[in-house]
Amino acid sequence: MDVVEFLLERIKEDEKAAQKLLGDRSVSQSGRWYEHRLLRECEAKRRLIRVIESARQASLARIVASSPGETVGMTEAIAWTALALHALAFPYSDHPDFQEGWRLAE
């Protein structure tokens, strides 16, 4: 499982939990506000993942199409996209599928 698959699965789990609580009539008004916020955050994370993945794919395509020596900065761009995805994975670091290689140095 790569970090993108991991993140998309965790986002699905977050959404399911929020939707379940929104269906519970005993949840307070502040709880409902929080669950709506969580759903918006899930969508924001998905959008951010799409942006990061687009940047990574564009960099990879440029590397493949480049001549030797023309890839300056492109490998760094790929490294930055990985760091961004690993930062998004951090809140889920206690999940059993989290890989230690995704943990950012503190």
Rank of each mutant, 00 (worst) to 15 (best):
F6P: 09
L7D: 01
R10P: 06
I11T: 12
K12W: 06
K12T: 13
E13Y: 03
D14A: 14
E15G: 13
A18I: 07
Q19N: 12
K20Y: 00
L22W: 10
D24W: 11
R25D: 06
V27F: 00
S28R: 13
S28K: 12
S30Q: 13
S30T: 07
G31N: 05
W33K: 15
Y34W: 07
H36M: 09
L38P: 04
L39M: 14
L39T: 11
R40C: 03
E41R: 14
C42D: 10
E43S: 14
A44T: 12
V51S: 10
V51N: 04
V51I: 14
V51A: 09
V51W: 00
I52P: 02
E53N: 06
A55K: 02
A55D: 03
A55W: 00
R56Y: 01
Q57M: 04
A58P: 00
A58Y: 00
A61S: 13
A61M: 04
R62S: 11
R62N: 06
A65C: 06
S66N: 11
S66A: 15
S67M: 10
G69M: 04
G69W: 05
E70T: 09
E70H: 11
T71L: 01
T71M: 07
T71E: 10
V72R: 12
G73K: 03
M74Y: 00
M74I: 04
T75D: 12
E76M: 10
I78R: 08
W80F: 06
T81W: 00
L83Y: 02
A84Q: 12
A84D: 05
L88P: 12
P91W: 03
H95N: 13
P96K: 08
P96G: 03
P96Y: 06
E100K: 15
E100W: 08
G101T: 13
G101M: 10
L104D: 01
E106H: 13
